[in-house]
């Protein structure tokens, strides 16, 4: 749980960093995220923590809109990993020997997947490609198709058999 709190705090700091000089609106932006995550972690409410994550991603979007992608991508990746850790911590309850083993393995996997996502995002950002108009359009259409394919495949493979 402590790890999830630290992760969310770091993610919030990263997401808010680019907006810190945005005057009063910029200063107030992290408050709802902080409130939602704080209450959710304190009262062990998964719905509130998930809402906090969504708001954190929007904060990241606002940061990315200013052109600072690295902290925003870091915030999103860290937020996702902390979200995983928090949800499993809620489920496992008080830490026993078995719970500690599970949490350790889960933390490792969550941060590994998040790091991979972050690395891919940064790698793509560093990549300089010159695309003709139709190429760009094709890439976008491909991305859409990939997202739709992912959702449909997941729905088919993970549907309930009961």
């Amino acid at each position: 749980m402590a790890l999830a709190c630290l992760g969310f705090a770091a993610a919030l700091g990263l997401a808010w960093g680019p907006l810190i000089h945005g005057g009063l609106p910029g200063a107030l932006l992290p408050l709802p995220v902080l409130l939602s995550l704080g209450v959710g972690l304190w009262r062990r409410k998964p719905a509130l923590v998930s809402a906090g994550l969504v708001m954190l991603v929007f904060l990241g979007v606002a940061g990315a809109a200013t052109g600072k992608l690295l902290p925003a991508a870091g915030a999103v990746a860290l937020g996702l990993a902390s979200w995983d850790v928090a949800l499993l911590s809620f489920r496992l309850g008080p830490a026993g020997e078995s719970a500690r083993i599970i949490l350790k393995a889960q933390t490792r996997r969550a941060f590994w997947v998040a790091a991979l996502g972050f690395a891919l995002c940064v790698g793509l950002w560093r990549l300089r490609l010159t695309l003709p108009f139709w190429g760009l359009l094709g890439t976008l259409a491909g991305m859409w198709a990939a997202v739709v394919l992912l959702s449909r495949t997941a729905a088919r493979l993970y549907r309930s058999r009961g």
């Binding site: 979007v61 996702l80 950002w125």
Partner: peptide, 21 residues
């Protein structure tokens, strides 16, 4: 918004979802 950094923010989420599943 035709803003690549925002589009790229979808990458960590996509990786998380795909690898997780």
């Amino acid at each position: 918004l035709r803003h690549p950094p925002i589009l790229l923010l979808a990458v960590p989420v996509a990786v998380h979802l795909t690898f997780g599943l």
